[in-house]
């Protein structure tokens, strides 16, 4: 389980998470995700293309991050691998209706900055 980030200028931050966002995996990255999302960037892209499993505890962490970004007037979006089960988890809980989901990074970055 790992979490890292990269900034693109003053406006955009990309957060990359890999591994399993199950109970033990989310415990390791949840507070870091919120901390990284709190940076004063207009757009935040959370890249989940290397996440193999997304449980509800992981979705809660994503919602917490998205709320932090929204509260300071920014926008958080997700990038997922279409072939993974991550999209199934997002759709099952309806969270894909709350946090925009994209299949490629370029679309996600455009949306985060729009």
């Amino acid at each position: 389980m790992s979490i890292s980030h990269e900034d693109f200028g003053e406006s955009l931050r990309r957060i990359v998470i890999s591994g399993r966002l199950d109970v033990p995996g989310t415990d390791r990255v949840a507070s870091k995700l919120v901390e990284l999302a709190a940076a004063p960037k207009k757009g935040v892209v959370v890249d989940l293309t290397s996440v193999k499993f997304l449980a509800s505890i992981g979705i809660r962490a994503l919602i917490a991050g998205a709320k932090v970004v929204q509260q300071r007037g920014g926008k958080m979006v997700l990038v997922v691998d279409d072939s993974s089960t991550v999209i199934m988890s997002l759709e099952a809980t309806g969270v894909n209706e709350l946090i925009p989901v994209f299949r490629n990074a370029a679309d996600a970055e455009r949306a985060a900055l729009a």
């Binding site: 809660r60 919602i63 709320k67 099952a92």
Partner: peptide, 22 residues
Amino acid sequence: EPPRSLDEASPGGLGLVMIRRC
């Protein structure tokens, strides 16, 4: 009911929603 906005989204109860859907 699924939340209609991030403001409405609460942290609890998602697990059971997921079980019912899967």
